[in-house]
Design a protein around this nucleic acid. Structure first.
Lengths: 235, 235
DNA sequence: CTTCGGCATTGATCTGGATCAAAGCTTGTC
DNA sequence: GACAAGCTTTGATCCAGATCAATGCCGAAG
């Protein structure tokens, strides 16, 4: 079953994962669906196996991005573990493949199996650090810097120079970077100035030196946060 | 020893806590000291037993508040557990009483003792949720609303009407609420309009109805986040 | 091919809060 | 009491980014 292939669960005994798998339900959910609402009490632990999910804080009419969840990860395990209401709404961004486990079953498993508990602790710690990084990106950088660093990261990962495609609609990228589409659009146009050219959804680097001179990736903000599986130790 | 009195560690076997206590060092640190620097690799797990500590994200010259740690809690356990560099600088706000445990010792204990692992998981989950609440407060409310809700919460906790003292210097409160002292000062003056009067560090409510009509506390933002101890379960 | 509805661009304008610049206040020290 | 150093208040000005308003640009449906 899918859970068994999760890298950060590899130290968990197969027996435990099997027991969870028996109780689990798989679900495929199209983009745009709402998985749960803010203030709801979690009924399930939800593993995101594929696709992506946005978590949004809501206050009256406006929504603010809390987190972008990418596979394989849990959706707000903190609420499930502590038996507390979700602090955010979950909306599917790219068609999601979910594995649902009844909340009580999940908590019982964590309370029974030390290896599972350690894996979830590693996962929760990574989520915390991602949250901090998100906040730092927003508070410590201007809109232009956020865009610059985002694009620089994108280009570096995929192709040192060659043209790269934007992975999402622009309005969504803008939203994830914490600005309006208009501002994003203007900044993209202005990137010409720093050695980048954007036409449609294609990004081309024209002057990598200029780009690096203007935007500095910070590992403490931009590096992806890995989920570290902590080893169990015999007592 | 101090650790044994921590409410959220009460389900952890005394033997385990004793073993940690033996390896631990206590430390009293005056306000203003820096406990660790961003990007440092954690050498110790640090329990904050009394006082308070600010965590600050740093980028060149500017600092942004990441978290305000209040006792009893751990300072950035995520970094310690996952063997990764701190994402923030820690600066003592009010004289702190710390208990330090070598990082390796701490990780070994968590990997050995399931009950401890569950307690830390509860602690880490609570920290995650606090982080989310902090972010929502900042992104979903205007400066005026942040101040209004902060004061309303303060007044409600202490005395329904009677005058209340601000617990910190104004510049520090302003900083914690994510604005400059000037803005904070102006907003305090303007609170007259909504049924509150502030002179020096004393807050008086003149019209509770007006106050409540303007500012709405949201449990999903303003309620303190408790550390829930998860019970161990025999397998 | 045309039309329509959602994106994207571009320009003009607005605004919340920051920044800069003086004065007032406190508080502790000599 | 007088001074200094750090808070606080108040006013004037600035600015990044949002909002408002057209216009242009597809791609899908008929």
């Amino acid at each position: 079953m899918a859970l068994a292939e999760t890298p950060w669960l590899r130290l968990v005994p197969a027996a435990t994962l099997d027991r969870l798998a028996e109780q689990s339900v798989q679900h495929r959910v199209p983009a745009g669906s709402t998985l749960f609402e803010q203030a709801e009490t979690p009924a399930f632990a939800q593993f995101l196996m594929a696709g992506s999910v946005d978590l949004l804080g809501v206050n009256g009419a406006n929504e603010a991005l809390i987190e972008l969840v990418r596979p394989i990860d849990l959706l707000l395990p903190a609420a499930v573990l502590n038996r507390q209401p979700y602090l955010a709404r979950a909306r599917v961004l790219e068609e999601a493949h979910l594995v649902l486990i009844r909340a009580e079953t999940f908590r019982a498993a964590v309370a029974t199996d030390h290896a599972l508990c350690l894996a979830i602790l590693g996962c929760q710690a990574a989520q915390f650090r991602r949250q901090v990084k998100l906040g730092k990106n927003l508070k410590l950088r201007s809109a232009e810097e956020r865009v610059g660093c985002y694009l620089l990261g994108l280009v570096q990962d995929v192709a040192p120079h060659g043209p790269v495609r934007l992975p999402l609609e622009k309005r969504l990228i803008a939203w994830h970077l914490g600005m309006t589409r208009e501002t994003f659009s203007r900044i993209l146009a202005a990137m010409e100035r720093y050695g980048m050219h954007i036409t449609g959804d294609t990004v081309t680097v024209t002057d990598m030196d200029a780009l690096r001179a203007r935007f500095h990736l910070d590992p403490l903000i931009d590096d992806p946060e890995p989920i570290v599986p902590l080893p169990v130790r015999r007592s």
